[in-house]
Amino acid sequence: MTAGAPSQLGPTGTGAATARLPGVAVPERRRLRTPPFKRAIFIALILGLSVLFIYPFVWLISASLKPQADVFDNRLIPRDFANNYWGDPTPGAPGDEALFSLPEVPVATWFMNSVWIGVLGALLVTFSSALVAFAFAYFRFPGRNVLFGLVLATMMLPGAVTMIPEYLIWNELSQITGEGGRFAALPDIGVNTQYPLWVPNLFASAFYIFLLRQFFMGIPRDLFDAARIDGDSYFSMFRRIALPLAKPALIVAFVFEMQAKWFDLIRPLIYLRDTDLFTLPLGLKTILDQFGTGGGGESDWQIIMAGTVVAVVPMVILFALFQRAFLEGISTSGRKG
């Protein structure tokens, strides 16, 4: 596997400069000659609008810090910080429970489930998609165009069409690996386990294949040929040259899949039954149903708001860390959400 002769190219070879996300126009900063007066008006306008856009976040955080009676009082700064569901509020006070210690809604467990499934799924799909994308970008093989056409076609397919048979596959798997099944010795995979949430990520995803292939095609072929001459196997060439150079695009795929996993409600709804297995979106829905006005809840909106903050904040952090990847990914792909 390892190269016989040391390659002249480090992981950050000269090709890195040429390898940009294709499709992202390198904007030549236009100096629009907006007169200062007009510019001031525009800035005032945009400030007003951004207050409008940010307001729901501020409202949400503030509501999560209030006691039940004050949730809808429209103060942005809570009147009473002492009785909220974050920490361990005054004992004996109304609602003296903390969000993370409510037994019927194990928020901390859901959070960790979401984190590990998100990270694992994103890593798997990024790696497998990169492998496939590299094959489509570098190798010439019979049937390449037809197969790539199939990849693109699957991007158009609504998930609803395959959703039911896929469920039946997992259902069948839980029959044979569950208790009393023929392969009961194996770990139980199937319905009501978390495998259906991340195992499909092993098999690459059309959208990321497309994205990464575009990127790999931007890397000069000479780099790969040079590595081959140096004695690299195809796989080590992929690992040592292609992957390091494609880092920006790999990060895009990774953060997009993280986001997709963090957002996903429908697959957990279909596959999970036990509360402890839930991911955060399904957990949040459970909190809403349990504490909201319907379903016998007592309108404990402060708990619901605290749970919502737990779901929102990690994405904001991820976005802060990988802002460029998010924005470049959206301009390249235009995928909504």
Partner: peptide
């Protein structure tokens, strides 16, 4: 202006209600 886009849809559903 991009921030709402990274808000989980379940959270958006809850925000609609409140």
């Amino acid at each position: 202006f991009y921030l709402p886009q990274i808000t989980p849809p379940v959270a958006v559903g809850i925000l609609i209600l409140v």
